[in-house]
């Protein structure tokens, strides 16, 4: 769900940059702390960033200035937390703009807010809440990734709607119009991404559960429980 370069007029692109800025600063602060405590964090985060990039380069066409992709940020939010994900998303958006011509520089603030902040934050909150409620891990991961995608798409529609309100009915009408147009591609896409992320999670638990323990995503006992249930 990228908004193309030049599509958002002033003052909206500046406004979305300003909204995203505090999250980026907080992300950098956490990143610095993480690098100091654990040097292995750098390759791990780089893997996550490149992974998000490759996942998001699988694309589907859709109407209106942005195009439809899996965002991949749901997985990242569950693994690394919401603030680190905003930094990863910043790196990924830069590469998408420069390598794939998706998105842009002025619209990066808006894209960062929808893909890198709003979606991952919701995914992270849902994952933590689901884990606390002792729900099935894969179900929780599925819901988190699904919600991250859907929320990202709603935020993008909202960003377009406030920048281009309809003459009759204002923001509400154009919000509904943009939502309806994106729904065709985004809802199936979100479900598929949810399934895929849940399956990826299963692979990680099968092969390298120690990573998840180290990242404080799952406890050792939780992993043993999942493995016993699968056996």
């Amino acid at each position: 769900m990228h908004i193309m370069e030049g599509f958002l007029p002033s003052p909206w692109w500046q406004l979305w940059w300003l909204v995203s800025l505090p999250f980026v600063v907080l992300g950098f602060y956490q990143l610095r702390k993480m690098f100091q405590e654990n040097r292995e964090a750098l390759p791990l985060l780089a893997v996550a960033g490149a992974f998000v990039f490759v996942l998001s380069s699988l694309k589907l066409p859709s109407v209106t200035g942005s195009c439809s992709h899996p965002t991949g940020t749901g997985l990242s939010a569950v693994l690394f937390g919401a603030f680190i994900t905003s930094i990863l998303a910043l790196v990924v958006l830069m590469y998408q703009a420069l390598f794939l011509a998706h998105g842009g520089i002025t619209t990066m603030g808006a894209n960062l807010f929808s893909m890198g902040i709003a979606g991952p934050l919701l995914a992270w909150v849902l994952y933590r809440a689901g884990k606390r409620a002792n729900l099935n891990t894969f179900l929780v991961v599925f819901i988190a990734a699904l919600a991250a995608d859907l929320f990202t798409y709603m935020v993008t529609s909202f960003q377009l709607a406030v920048a281009f309100p309809a003459s009759e009915g204002g923001i509400t009408t154009s919000f509904a119009a943009f939502l309806a147009i994106f729904a065709i591609t985004q809802i199936p896409l979100a479900i598929i991404e949810g399934v895929i992320v849940a399956l990826i999670f299963k692979y990680i638990i099968d092969v390298r559960p120690d990573i998840l323990v180290k990242l404080n995503v799952l406890s050792k006992t939780a992993i043993e429980r999942i493995r016993e249930a699968a056996a």
Binding site: E40, P43, V47, F51, V54, V195, I196, L199, I200, Y203
Partner: peptide
């Protein structure tokens, strides 16, 4: 397709993860 794509992504993640460790 869904199954194949998730296998692709999962295998990709693990392969790249190993590469990342080797890189360190």
């Amino acid at each position: 397709s869904v199954h194949a794509l998730s296998m692709l992504c999962g295998a990709l993640f693990i392969k790249a993860w190993v590469r990342g460790e080797e890189m360190l």
